[in-house]
Nucleic acid binder design. Structure first.
Lengths: 191, 191
DNA sequence: AATTGACCGTATTAGTAAAATGGTCAGAAG
DNA sequence: CTTCTGACCATTTTACTAATACGGTCAATT
């Protein structure tokens, strides 16, 4: 069995366990067991638990970035691109599971590593959105505004529509999420 | 000293303590001391700590409702009223202090009573916004949409602009908050 | 050379005694 | 008699300690 395979096995097992049980409740013994690997093997690829977690987050963000890049057409309007990226991201439930589990762990236990992980994801996503918003402003596609504020609002709107709303409301389907994104961000409520 | 005065003293002292230290860190001995009252006196007006807390929340919500009612002119447009109410509410820092302390307590310690209190406030506010949004839809002032979703989004937008943003951004002043409220809710970003 | 799991020191949890807190009420104050 | 109070009680929370679990290592094994 090649080296890459074992490394990948560990990575997959850890991703599964972090998504299922969160950071704290995931033990290295457990990861080794799921990966069908001796515990020591993990430490030939990753210096420690935190670094393993970090690598998973990095991979997740890389994949999300790839999804976004793949959907963005520079010749198309900003809101077209936004909806296409949104659409593609909404298909990737696996990324969301880890994100949602970390949110939950952070709320319930306040695990610092969960908080740090979420902050890292958020800052990367916000940076990305911010650059796109800046571009859209320069190209006159959207009104002049502070990209920092707009990116935060867009991100929170995404969280509200995909996750928070589900506590009191039946979950929205993909089309509804996109419709409300358009309503609030593009058109506004006013008749 | 009249009965009402003592009751009011207790209420004021408790509000102060809850706002300053949160629910859990507020002891009945402390409230009695601040109010210059024997501990037993508190229990002549309030059955227990939770009920005292509840009454304070109720008072707070009543005052917020009064502020809203005072600003709403039924003959004026929806967004006019929205901005006037927002403006008036943003002036009342005292209400916000308790709200912000409870948010913090909930995040840091997960005190159940803090969570319950916040939920209560949220549900009352959401109900209020929902009714207003329904009315605005019926009068054709805003586009047809689910009032439940719109009220949640409006509430979260308020939280983001007044509180969450301050972690990474210099706090917005009242005018900026109103501007962004208009931008996202009324007009939309699209040129 | 790559892999492993028993092993080590430290961090977390469970268990318990001590302290603090919510709530009561007999008696003091008016 | 009515109002108010703080010492008192039962229960919860905290501080301390012993037991367990965990992250990480490395000599032995494949």
């Amino acid at each position: 069995m090649a080296v890459v395979d074992r490394r990948q096995q560990v990575l997959q097992a850890a991703t599964k366990s972090f998504s299922l049980f969160g950071y704290k409740a995931t033990t290295m013994d457990q990861v080794a067991k799921i990966a069908n690997v001796g515990k020591g093997t993990i430490y030939t690829f990753f210096t420690n638990k935190e670094q393993l977690f970090d690598e998973i987050l990095r991979d997740m963000m890389t994949e999300m970035k790839m999804i976004a890049e793949r959907e963005i057409r520079r010749d198309k309007p900003f809101f077209d691109n936004l909806h296409r990226v949104l659409d593609a991201l909404l298909e990737f439930r696996s990324e969301h599971e880890l994100f949602i589990k970390l949110s939950q762990e952070n709320r319930e236990f306040g695990t610092p590593q969960a908080q740090e992980g979420l902050d890292k994801i958020e800052s990367v996503v916000l940076e990305y959105i911010e650059r796109e918003v800046e571009l859209a402003i320069r190209q006159g596609e959207i009104k002049p505004c502070d990209p920092k504020i707009v990116s935060v609002v867009m991100f929170r709107l995404y969280i509200v529509l995909t996750a928070e709303l589900n506590k009191t409301h039946t979950p929205l389907d993909k089309e509804q999420i996109k419709d409300y994104f358009r309503l609030f961000l593009a058109e506004g409520l006013a008749q």
